[in-house]
Design a protein around this nucleic acid. Structure first.
Length: 422
DNA sequence: TCTGGGGTCCTAGGACCC
DNA sequence: TCTGGGGTCCTAGGACCC
């Protein structure tokens, strides 16, 4: 028998983080918006009950917000990232190994804990997380990651599980797999779900019983592995070591559209600077940079254009000023006048650890530049992103994204720490 | 009529995930 | 008026090369 795997998942994570520091949000409908205050990406149970869906644009929700007194917040990633650290610290004693899968989900390798009552074990862990962070969670237990995901979904959806579902029990597993539709399985998106239901495969149980050969024909090796996982055969281990990044991106929608090249360069310079900061914080160098921008795809009746251009970086670099220069070369090639651009970005690819960077024949002395970058990162780290910027970013930056309802950085900025009065 | 095969690079887009 | 950002993996066609 394979070792049990658990998935702990925070309920309505962003909303729960906001509630941890603002008691007025408890018990009332709350939504948290995407970057640029565009659409709802987290909803409290009360907001879900009002029919608010994941991804609903906020400008379609204005009436509901007013009518029901829904509390709205911009997303506050400094807070959510810091709270994640605390959640994981609370889980630490409860597993042998961890794979942090996303900001609110972690897989646990429970090897060595098999002899325990794992439902009680999971409940003790949930209590610890709640005590340290106030954040409510659900836990799914099974023999593979795919089944643990399913177990977690069942724990969340079905109150009879009371927050913890263990699919190692045959009856429970059969019951859950017959109840969940194929599109609710981790790794089955809408396109694959359509193909499967056309074949008469519409539950998790039916997918489990699909012949392997047929699975491969319908969805390549990816779906074949998924079927194996549903049968309890692991093909996706809990990986505690974070794999090396292959690429990274900084992309944003604009608060107001950009029609002018230099203004576009203002935005791209800012993103390139931030990309360099991310690169340095991971100790990586990049070999390729891509700059892109496009018009509003939600408005097909308006003139549409979008393009991206790749620029090779040699020598490979971590220098933000070189990234900005490369972004300009790419943007010049891609640019066309006469369009209202609403989104742009910088992507870095072919990343290598700094120490593995191939040396060139004539190495330039970059120590001064390295110091400058270090100073830039230190200033922006201490006083907030975009305190120290390059002139190319411009001074007005009216295109910068909206974030009008953001809560304070309660836990990561000393001037915003909450105060308690006796 | 028949008109190579194989490789890389670039751009674009689909599918999936959170 | 206002529709996120950041990842991974995969496919496909055109340009270009030998």
């Amino acid at each position: 028998m394979s070792t049990p795997i658990a998935l702990i998942d925070c309920n309505n994570y962003y909303v729960s983080c906001e509630r941890a520091f603002d008691a007025s949000l408890v018990g009332v409908p709350v939504i948290v918006l995407s970057n640029n205050d565009g659409c709802a990406i987290a909803r409290s149970a009360e907001a879900k009950a009002l029919g608010i869906k994941m991804g609903d644009p906020i400008h379609h929700l204005r009436d509901k917000v007013r009518q029901h007194g829904i509390q709205v917040r911009s997303s506050n990633y400094a807070l959510y990232g810091d709270m994640q650290r605390r959640v994981i610290a609370a889980c630490e004693p409860f597993a042998r190994d961890f794979e942090i899968y996303s900001i609110d989900e972690t897989f646990l390798d429970l090897a060595g804990f098999e002899s325990r009552d794992l439902i009680a074990h999971a409940n003790a862990m949930r209590a610890q997380v709640q005590l340290w962070t106030t954040i409510p969670t659900c836990v799914g237990i099974a023999e593979t990651k795919t089944l643990a995901k399913l177990a977690n979904a069942a724990a969340k959806k079905n109150p009879q599980f009371d927050g913890v579902a263990d699919l190692r029990d045959d009856d429970v597993r059969r019951y859950v797999m017959d109840a969940f539709s194929v599109g609710d399985i981790w790794g089955v998106g809408s396109a694959t779900a359509r193909k499967l239901t056309d074949l008469g495969i519409d539950t998790a149980g039916a997918l489990r019983d699909m012949p392997m050969k047929q699975a491969r024909a319908v969805g390549t090796v990816v779906l074949e592995r998924l079927v194996a996982e549903l049968r309890g055969v692991p093909s996706n281990a809990v990986e505690s070591v974070e794999p090396r990044r292959k690429g990274m991106a900084v992309t944003r929608s604009f608060g107001t559209p950009i029609c002018d090249f230099e203004r576009m360069m203002g935005a791209l310079s800012q993103y390139a600077l931030r990309a360099g900061e991310k690169l340095r914080s991971h100790g990586l160098v990049a070999a390729r940079l891509t700059a892109f921008f496009h018009t509003n795809k939600h408005k097909p009746d308006r003139p549409q254009y979008g393009a991206s251009r790749m620029v090779t970086l040699h020598p490979m670099t971590i220098d933000s000023l070189e990234l900005i220069a490369a972004a300009r070369r790419g943007a010049e090639k891609a640019w066309r006048d006469g369009y209202a651009y609403t989104k742009a970005g910088i992507m870095l690819d072919d990343l290598l650890p700094e120490e593995d960077r191939p040396r060139t024949l004539f190495e330039e002395d970059t120590s001064k530049r390295d110091q400058l970058m270090g100073a830039l990162d230190a200033i922006n780290g201490k006083f907030g992103t975009w305190t120290a910027v390059t002139a190319s970013q411009g001074f007005k930056r009216e295109w910068k994204m909206r974030s009008e309802m953001r809560s304070p950085a309660w836990t990561t900025n000393i001037s915003e720490v909450p105060t308690v009065r006796a």
